[in-house]
Amino acid sequence: MTPPLLTVEGLRTHFFTRAGVVKAVDDVSFTLARGEVMGLVGESGSGKSITGYSIMGLVDPPGRVVAGSIRLDGRELTTLDPESMRKLRGNRVAMIFQDPMMTLNPVLRIDRQMTEAILAHDDVGERVALGRARDALERVGIPSPDERLKAWPHQFSGGMRQRVAIAIALLNEPDLIIADEPTTALDVTIQGQILHEVQKLARETGTALVWITHDLSVVAGLADRVCVMYAGRIVEQGTTAQVLDTPAHPYTQGLLDSVPSRNARGARLKQIPGMTPSLIGLAPGCAFRERCARADADCAETPAMSVDGNDPGRGVRCHHPIVPWTQPPR
C-alpha cells in the first residue's frame, strides 16, 4: 500500500479570545490518499473550515495550531518555517473559498491575479505564465480565455468567478486542493456544473480533494470518503456509502433525517433538537449528548474514535453507535 498523501493526527487548533479558549478543532485525525476525494461535513462552527486553514497554515491570530501533526507526503507542516510553508501554499496545496464574489481582488485584473500565483513559485517569464493562465482558464470551461484574461473580476458572474478561482487553484497542479464550500454561494444549476467540472479535473490531474461542505447531497455525488465533524471533532468517518447508508453516529443520522426527500413528501421534516454548543469552555464528554436521544451517563466521558475491527477506514466517536459495531481487536 502506498503511503497516504496527507496524514492529520490529533490536530488541535484553538483560538485564544478574551472570552476564553475556543477549541475550534479538537483532536482531528484523518488520512487522504493520492487522488482521493474526501468530504468534510458539518454545520457552521463545527471546525471544518479551520481544519482546512490549519492544513494551509492560514490560521489567523488569535488562533493557533496547539497540538497534533499534519504531514503532506511525509513532510511535517506544523513545524515548517513560514517561507517553506509559503512555497508549499498554492503550489502543492491549493485552496478554493466559499464566496467567489469576495475571493478575487476587485482592483486587480484577472491576468495579474493568475500570473502572480505562478510567478510566486516558478521562475518563468511573464509570457510563459500568461500562457499557463490562459490554458487554465480554458480547462475550467471559460469561453474566449484570451479576452477574459484582460477582464476585471466585476465583469464575471458568480459561477464564472468560481471557475477562475478553481483555475487559479489548478495553476501549479497541486497534489491537494482544499475546497471550502465552493458551491454554497452559487445557484443550483451552476453548482452542478462546478461539481462536475472539479470532479473531472481532479480525476484528470490526480489531485486529491478535501471538500468542505454542510450539504450531504453534494458529498453523495462527489466524495469517496466522508468525515462528519461536530463541535471541533470528527464524530464519524467511512466511505460515502457507509456513512450515508448506515450512519453509526446519532448526529449523522440526524443530519440525514433533516434532508428533505421525495419519499416523505408532505411529512414533517425531522430536525435535531437544540443548538450547536458554544465552543468556549465546552465541558468534557460527548459534545452532542445534550441533543441526543441515546445519551446516558456514559456520555459524560469523551468517547474515543473507535475504529471498526474489520475496516480501518471506518470509525465512530460514540458510546452508543446506532449500527452494531465490531470492536477492534485488543
Binding site: R86, N91, M102, T103, L104, N105, E116, A165
Partner: peptide, 25 residues
Amino acid sequence: QDYVKFARAKGLSNRRVIGVHVLRN
C-alpha cells in the same frame, strides 16, 4: 477580506499581499 486570504493561499509573499492586494484597495 477573503481576497487577502486567497492571495495568501496562492503562496504570495507577505510583501506582495500587503503591497499590492491590500494597498491597492
